[in-house]
Design a protein around this nucleic acid. Structure first.
Lengths: 197, 197
DNA sequence: GTCTGACCGGATTGCTAGTCTGGTCAGATG
DNA sequence: CATCTGACCAGACTAGCAATCCGGTCAGAC
């Protein structure tokens, strides 16, 4: 594969990302993407099997960006609960700004059809849950996370928990200030609700 | 208001509940409800201001049933964290069985229009959050819940947390067995993830 | 060998006419 | 006279069809 081809692949991804973000997949035609990328329509299919695969590639790319930012924010010298808190904060910041990431969770059928949304959700769930799981394992090794927790199960549950707050914030269904919610979420996830008596 | 009128009101609520549950609000006509209830169409408007208000009344009634079952399951001699666990379990059982309760959270636009769903969600959120809040206050009084938590904020967060598990289970997006998720959720909500070191 | 855009069929949209339905109210009922 | 009703209305929704659009292909240009 030539340098020229690599270029085209990247230009297609960029053009697609921009358009999907602004108009959603439904209102973005393949042709408008290839035109913006300066290639013929058929060339898209030299790089991606379908429009949907291209969409998933843009999501994957955006998730990469988000996870990179999260990795930066989650300083390895912090205890694991603090790292999880940073993850939620970075998630809020990213998802608020990036429609491409938020859309699959807000099911707006004008922007995104059900099938693509499901796949994108699955992709994000997997990637983020994975990060949480490794963080938990690190924490257990470092002694800041209880050894009794099964990292895989706890990661899945923590993803749903964290996402619940992000989602209810994005949909404006959260009835309390976000700051309060995050602080309390952090408190509960760190120490539980019990008094320990 | 006569006994006859009270009867009609109840019959209308019952007929509506049955039909909304089976067909959703969109595919249930006012006339089919009044026919089933044995009243004229206009009589509905002697008892309810609109079809939507009637729908909300059926939701309120179903939530009452759910909360009653929850109250029975949440034995007052249990510590508060155990009572919260019972609440989630009863919620799963009810929401799995009762489409009327689950529908507003699954946004199926075939069954329920957006506005009604939003109002129904709000109603359920308020009622359940309220129950959680009083449970937390009880627990703080009894010493089984940490005094440091703001009951109102913690209740809102716990609602979102609990609902996240219920929802992801109902939508089959939960990637782990429900039993594992509930056990771990309970564990985290009770004791947190931290080791206490 | 690499790339393209004219082309295909199926999905979507726009349109119109006809039907349905939430809500009203003049009048029937007892 | 209080209670209740169903014919009626306006506007929303549906069916059906023609016209358009668009994802994906492939014969041929370069």
């Amino acid at each position: 594969m030539s340098v020229r081809q690599d270029d085209a692949r990247e230009r297609l991804l960029d053009a697609a990302t921009q358009r999907f973000r602004r108009f959603g997949t439904r209102h973005t035609s393949v042709e408008s993407i290839t035109t913006a990328a300066g290639t013929g329509k058929g060339s898209l299919y030299l790089h991606y099997q379908s429009k949907e695969e291209l969409y998933l590639a843009t999501v994957r790319h955006a998730v990469d960006g988000f996870l990179e930012a999260a990795a930066t924010a989650m300083h390895p010298d912090q205890p694991a609960p603090a790292r999880l808190r940073s993850l939620v904060e970075v998630a809020i910041a990213h998802y608020e700004r990036d429609d491409l990431l938020a859309a699959p969770f807000l099911d707006d059928r004008e922007l995104l059809d059900d099938h693509a949304a499901t796949l994108a959700r699955q992709l994000q769930r997997e990637r983020v849950t994975d990060l949480i799981r490794t963080t938990l394992i690190d924490g257990q090794r470092a002694g800041t996370i209880r050894a009794g927790l099964d990292p895989a199960v706890a990661a899945a549950v923590l993803f749903e928990i964290g996402w619940a707050i992000v989602r209810s914030h994005l949909t404006r269904e959260l009835t309390i200030p976000l700051g309060d919610a995050l602080r309390t979420l952090n408190d509960i996830v760190g120490h539980g609700t019990g008094s320990g008596h």
